[in-house]
Amino acid sequence: SIVTKIISIVQERQNMDDGAPVKTRDIADAAGLSIYQVRLYLEQLHDVGVLEKVNAGKGVPGLWRLL
């Protein structure tokens, strides 16, 4: 499923980069989806406690990390 793919992308990127959070844009590119589509999935995963959003604010790139 797309959700499983997104989780594995975040996991893979974090492992490659010493646990650093992953940008929404990088996840979207790797999943082959638009940034808006991916954001909806990321928000859902956040709501159920799978991911945390590391930063927030208007015009700030979203950074995500697995919990």
Results as ranks from 00 to 15, higher is better:
S1I: 10
I2N: 04
I2V: 08
I2L: 09
V3Y: 15
V3R: 11
V3M: 14
V3S: 07
T4P: 05
T4L: 13
T4K: 14
T4S: 13
K5H: 07
K5G: 03
K5F: 10
I6N: 06
I6H: 00
I6Y: 00
I7E: 01
I7C: 05
S8F: 12
S8Q: 13
S8P: 00
I9D: 00
V10A: 02
V10S: 00
Q11S: 11
Q11V: 09
Q11C: 13
Q11W: 14
E12F: 11
E12T: 11
R13T: 03
R13N: 02
R13W: 06
R13Y: 12
R13P: 03
Q14T: 08
Q14N: 06
N15F: 11
N15D: 10
M16G: 08
M16D: 07
M16E: 06
D17S: 15
D17T: 15
D17M: 15
D17N: 15
D17Q: 15
D18S: 12
D18N: 14
G19N: 08
G19E: 04
G19F: 05
G19V: 03
A20T: 07
A20W: 05
P21Y: 09
P21C: 08
P21R: 03
P21N: 03
V22A: 04
V22Q: 05
V22I: 06
V22H: 01
V22L: 04
K23D: 08
K23V: 03
K23E: 07
K23P: 13
T24Y: 01
T24R: 02
T24P: 05
R25T: 09
D26F: 08
D26I: 06
D26M: 05
I27F: 02
A28V: 03
A28N: 00
D29C: 08
D29W: 08
D29R: 12
A30M: 08
A31Q: 01
A31M: 14
A31F: 03
G32Q: 06
G32L: 03
G32D: 15
L33E: 02
L33I: 08
L33R: 01
S34I: 05
I35V: 11
I35A: 05
Y36F: 12
Y36D: 13
Y36L: 10
Q37T: 11
V38Y: 00
R39V: 14
R39F: 09
L40T: 08
L40Y: 13
L40A: 10
L42K: 00
L42G: 00
L42D: 00
L42S: 00
E43H: 08
E43P: 01
E43T: 06
Q44P: 02
Q44V: 13
L45N: 00
H46V: 15
H46S: 12
D47H: 14
D47S: 14
D47V: 13
V48H: 12
V48L: 14
G49S: 02
G49Q: 04
G49R: 04
V50E: 02
V50L: 09
L51S: 01
L51E: 05
E52W: 02
E52C: 11
E52R: 04
E52M: 06
K53C: 08
V54K: 02
V54Q: 02
V54I: 09
V54S: 03
N55R: 08
A56E: 09
A56V: 11
G57H: 07
G57K: 08
G59T: 07
G59Q: 06
P61V: 10
P61F: 12
P61K: 11
G62L: 15
W64V: 02
W64Y: 02
W64L: 01
L66G: 02
L66C: 07
L66P: 03
L67K: 14
L67D: 05
L67G: 09
